[in-house]
Amino acid sequence: MAAPSPEVAGEAQPASAVGGVRIIAWWIAEKLGALLILALILAVMTVFYPDFVTTSNLLTIGLQATTRAILAIGVTLVIVSGGIDLSVGTVMSLSMVGMATIMINMGGPMWIGIPVAVATGAFAGLLNGVLVTFGGLPPFIATLGMLGIAQGTALSLSKGYSMYGFPPSFEFIGGGVLFGIPFPLYILVAVALLMGFVFHHTRVGRYAYAIGGNEEGVRRTGVNIRRYKMSLYIICGALSGTASIVLASRINSAHPGVGYGYELDAIAASVIGGASLMGGRGSVSGAIIGAIIMATIRFGLNVLGMSPFLQQIAVGAILIAAVFLDNLRLKHEARVSKARFHR
């Protein structure tokens, strides 16, 4: 991204070079943790099923991870700012039903249906943002309310029925294969690159980290906190809408209840990937690795024949364990930081 600048590149900067190495070391340690978990899960599954790790299985996991990863990236952006979005799952349902209403009930074309899905999600995100910033509600409550509102709206719009009859061309998004790779994975890569850019190179992304680190401090520097917080929830909602397109196309139908529960996976993926619910930390790559872990666990439990009911218990337990470990890490860091302060 950065164009090489000869005058700076030529400078001797031993101090920052050491810092760079340290940052990379940290980054690897953080990512490695999640990757190790993934390797462990695959190893355990291989013990039970020697041919678990096959291209076909991995592609299936990748496909299942796509929806979760897109949701997890959005929710990570909100979590980084110290907020939370519990409505990503049901907003995905609502977006899906909205899109199906246009494309199936009204016979509208894909180029209207797809933007409608994204816009529906973005609008729900906007409402979340308004409730949090102008309403002064805790994000947990605002988005919990939205979870119910989106679910109810999706059920009302669809009258509770599944909706079938997307045009054949729509199927390619979720079911197509390009150069031997399922098309949804291209979408995931595109979303990841775009959001990586947002996280690292735009004010919205950087201020999410800053707000998550010290909201009052950021306010004092004169940054319009409300504006940026609103943007975070809107982007998160728009990504829920994007995920709904991929999922609807993959199952070639719209279900008003399909998204409920995805928030659990998305938040777990985000935290497993290194995001901290206290804010200030999290990444796109972490969210994706976390989503792959969640999808692998789901897939593995299916292969092992665990009932979907018990799977819910497992996912809930994983979320709790991940947050528990994050808390331990934060406590440790607070101690180290305090010791450094008085150095």
């Binding site: 980290y209 998550g212 680190g213 009052e216 401090g217 004092r220 930081s337």
Partner: peptide, 10 residues
């Protein structure tokens, strides 16, 4: 400010 208006994580 007394309480340091810095973001510790940045």
């Amino acid at each position: 400010y007394q309480d340091l208006a810095l973001c510790d994580n940045l």
